[in-house]
């Protein structure tokens, strides 16, 4: 009995050491890969950053990135406009109002949605919006495709943030005679907002890095975005990264790396903001 316990203890110790070493190895591998990507992108892209990058539009495979930068912001703006309110309201509904069975169903739908490859969403957007609705390559088709992609994240993070607020706040407010809406607004949303905004920022950064849903729906344009929501293709940074790396010209490569660097900077800023807003855990 005694022997077998120590044997088991011994082998457990080996197993735990091995797990530890494997984890460390995996971590090192990830760090090295990420560093390699970062260094490459910075080395090849930093040289391209200049004022004219922001003030001139792409011409062929050279020029600036003004059209792509503005296009990215345009797409992000509209996709957040669509996915933000719907996602936040969905999260509130799931956290506060939904009966168990409906909540389970909706959560399942959200999970399935989150699991759909983004290229499929792009193709769906193409057949549905670009073709059937006749919107053509456009901000509208592109941003709706992006919002389908980010919606599940927003719903999930909103629900989680609201569930962190004690239910007794909500009930206490109802007991005073507040309407469910007032109760949510005054005692639930306030403490939940940092978490919800964090989720929103992370959702934006996910949308920022997507190419697949956009190539079929937003198209590409060498010109700055217009005020038309449909029929006008639009440029965006990930397109530059994706396409120009395949061109056999160094000016194209330079532009692709610069676009990648801009994307990374944007994502880092969003994550820093999110980190900053993260609700402080009370000690």
């Amino acid at each position: 009995m005694h022997g077998s316990t120590t044997m088991r203890g011994y082998s457990r110790k080996i197993a735990s050491n091995m797990t530890w070493m494997l984890s460390l190895g995996a971590l090192l591998l990830v760090v090295i890969v990420v560093l390699d990507i970062l260094i490459t992108v910075v080395r090849q892209g930093a040289g391209g950053i200049s004022l004219s990058l922001f003030t001139t539009q792409t011409t062929g495979i050279a020029g600036g990135l003004q059209n792509a930068i503005l296009g990215t912001l345009d797409l992000i703006f509209f996709s957040t406009l669509f996915a933000g309110p719907v996602g936040i309201m969905g999260g509130i509904y799931l956290a506060v109002f939904a009966p168990d069975r409906i909540a389970r169903t909706l959560r399942f739908v959200a999970e399935v949605l989150a699991g759909i490859p983004s290229i499929v969403i792009g193709y769906f957007g193409y057949t549905m919006m670009v073709q059937a609705f006749g919107w053509g390559f456009s901000v509208l088709a592109g941003s709706i495709s992006l919002s389908i992609l980010t919606l599940p994240y927003i719903v999930r993070t909103t629900e989680a943030s609201i569930r962190q607020v004690p239910k007794s706040y909500y009930e206490g407010a109802l007991a005073l005679g507040l309407t469910p809406f007032s109760a949510l607004r005054t005692v639930v949303m306030r403490p939940a907002t940092p978490g919800i905004v964090t989720g929103l920022l992370l959702a934006i950064s996910i949308g920022l890095g997507e190419t697949a849903p956009l190539i079929y729906t937003a198209g590409w344009s060498n010109f700055n975005p217009t005020l038309h929501l449909t029929k006008n293709p639009i440029g965006y940074l990930t397109y530059v990264v994706w396409t120009y790396l395949n061109e056999p010209y160094s000016s194209a490569h330079r532009l692709a790396y610069t676009a990648a660097l801009l994307l990374i900077i944007l994502v880092v800023i969003l994550h820093l903001l999110a980190r900053f807003l993260q609700p402080r855990v009370k000690g």
């Binding site: 004690p166 007794s168 706040y169 009930e171 206490g172 407010a173 005054t186 005692v187 306030r190 403490p191």
Partner: peptide
């Protein structure tokens, strides 16, 4: 309520 629930 069973536990005091002052609002934040």
């Amino acid at each position: 309520f069973q536990r005091p629930n002052p609002f934040p």
